[in-house]
Design a protein around this nucleic acid. Sequence first.
RNA 1: UGAGUCGGUCAGACAAUCGCCGCCCUUUUUGGGGGGAGGAAAGUCCGGGCUCCGCAGAGCAGAGUGCCAGGUAACGCCUGGGGGGUGUGAACCUACGAAAAGUGCAACAGAAAGUAUACCGCCUUUAUGGUAAGGGUGAAAUGGCGAGGUAAGAGCUCACCGCGCAUCUAGUAAUAGUAUGCGGCAGUGUAAACUCCACUCGGAGCAAGAUCAAAUAGGUUUCCGUUAAUGUUGCUCGCAUUGGAAACGGGUAGAUCGCUAGAGUCUGUAAGUGAUUGCAGAAGUAGAUGAAUGAUUGUCACCGCAAGGUACAGAACCCGGCUUAUGACUGACUCACACA
RNA 2: GGAUAGAUGACCGAGAGGCCGAAGGUACUCCCCUGCUAAGGGAGCAUGCGACCACAAGUUGCAUCGAGGGUUCGAAUCCCUCUCUAUCCG
Length: 120
Amino acid sequence: MTNLCFQRELRLVTPDHYKRVFDNPVKASSPNITILAKPNDLEHMRLGLIVPKKVLKHAVDRNRIKRLTRNFFRLNQHRLPCLDYVFIAKGKIGDMTNNEVVNLLEKLCTVISRRSKKSV
RNA sequence: UGAGUCGGUCAGACAAUCGCCGCCCUUUUUGGGGGGAGGAAAGUCCGGGCUCCGCAGAGCAGAGUGCCAGGUAACGCCUGGGGGGUGUGAACCUACGAAAAGUGCAACAGAAAGUAUACCGCCUUUAUGGUAAGGGUGAAAUGGCGAGGUAAGAGCUCACCGCGCAUCUAGUAAUAGUAUGCGGCAGUGUAAACUCCACUCGGAGCAAGAUCAAAUAGGUUUCCGUUAAUGUUGCUCGCAUUGGAAACGGGUAGAUCGCUAGAGUCUGUAAGUGAUUGCAGAAGUAGAUGAAUGAUUGUCACCGCAAGGUACAGAACCCGGCUUAUGACUGACUCACACA
RNA sequence: GGAUAGAUGACCGAGAGGCCGAAGGUACUCCCCUGCUAAGGGAGCAUGCGACCACAAGUUGCAUCGAGGGUUCGAAUCCCUCUCUAUCCG
C-alpha cells in the first residue's frame, strides 16, 4: 500500500525555493502549460504552482487548475523523480477540460523525467 | 395562449474509493468521531462593531444627508404616509428644504434674458409723449379668457379659472380642502453653481494591533531644553517624539495571538397597517495564511444528435444594507386575444 | 485584504457647462523646395448611419470623448451605477 498523502513538506513555500528552481532548470513546455524542474537534496519531490491573474481572471478557474495539478502530482508522486517542480499556467488553459489538462500533464512529465536523467 | 408586474424557495441528489484543512477523544503511531464556501463570498458604494493613534480635546476649514413620521447599534438602508411624474393596467420612478439673505451663470437668436429710455406696430399730435393688446426670436418673454373701459391700450375695473397670504377644518406631521376672507398679480430658470438653513461626521485601518524573539545596533528610561523638523487631520492651538547629559537594556526576519457565538438563524406566540420589537423554545461552531473545502467511478434529474456538460461564481476580522452578475421552480396580480 | 488615481482621433496629450468634433505634438498622405535624400514650408487626416447624387468627388444632417442612467434649455465637463487599466500599504 503506497502512501498517497500530500502534505506541506511536498510544496514549495517561500520565494527562495522558487528562485532556486528558476535558476537553470529543466524545461518542458506546451502552449498552455510550462513545467520547470530541478533536482533537490530531499527524498521526495516538491511542487510549486504559478497561476497568474492575467491568464485566468476568475478565482474559481484558478482554483480548478491548481486542484487538478496538485491532485495529479499527488497520485503520481512515487512514479516521478525527486525534483522540485514549478507549474506555470498560461495561454488559454481556461478553455481546456479536466481530461485534456491531465493528459497534457502526463505527456510533459515523461519529457521532464527523460531530460533530467540525461542531464544527471 | 402570449406579453408583462411584484414577490418566495432551491442552488443537482445519493453511494464508494483516494486525498486536503481545522476540532474532539484515545494513544504516541496510529485508530476513531464529527465539521468544512455564498446568495451574491463580488464591487468596496454607505453604516457599525473591534484595534491603535495621549479614551479623542477647542476653533476654523472640509465632507455628507435633505418632503413627513416611524424602525434600527447605525446608515445615504428599510417600513408607512404625502406631493410630483411614467404606464391602458398590475405597478414603478422620484437629491422632493430655501431662488423674497446675497453672489454668479443663461451661448446663438432676439428690441429686450430679469433690467425696461421698447425694434416693427397702435394712438395722439409732435414731445426726452402714451402703450404692452398684435408680430417675430428663443429652452425660457412679466397670468388665461370674456365683458366693461379708452385717443389707443393696459388687472385700469368686474365675473370665472389660476396664483399668493391668512384663518378654519382633517391629520402627530408632510399635506389636503366644491370652506371663508384678503391681495389685483411683483419677482424666468439654475442650488447634482457658490451659498443659506437643519442634522450628522476626530483620524487611520486586521497589511489595525498585541506577545515571544535569530541577525544587527540606528536604541530604552530619567532629567534638562522648547528654535526647527516629524507625527497626531487640511490648518491654528494643544500634545508627543527627534536634541544634550546620566543610567541600562531594546526588537528586524520569523513564529504565536488577533480568528470566530454573532446587534446571528429558524419556529411559535404577543404588540404594531408595516419595517420591527418583547417573550418562549429549537438547531448549530469553515477558520486557511504562496492560502484547505477536491478528483475518479456508478445510479438517477436536467441540457445536448453525440462527445460531453451542470447558471453566476470561491471565504481571508466580523456584522447590517445598497449595487452588479446569474440558472431553475413556484405564487399573486395586470393587459391582449380566443373559447365557454 | 485594504487605500488611491485614471480612461479624449493610429499614438501622446490639452480642454473642466454653450463659440468644441474637440488645442497642440508624433505618425501617415499629397504638394513645394533639391540633381536625389534628409531637414524646412504648405495642405489634408476619426468612425458609423442617412440626405443631395447615374457613379465618384464634394456638400450636409444625426450619433459617438470607456459603458449605461440622471440633473440642466444645453454635458467630454456636474451627480450616480458599472467595466477596464495602473499605483501604494507586509
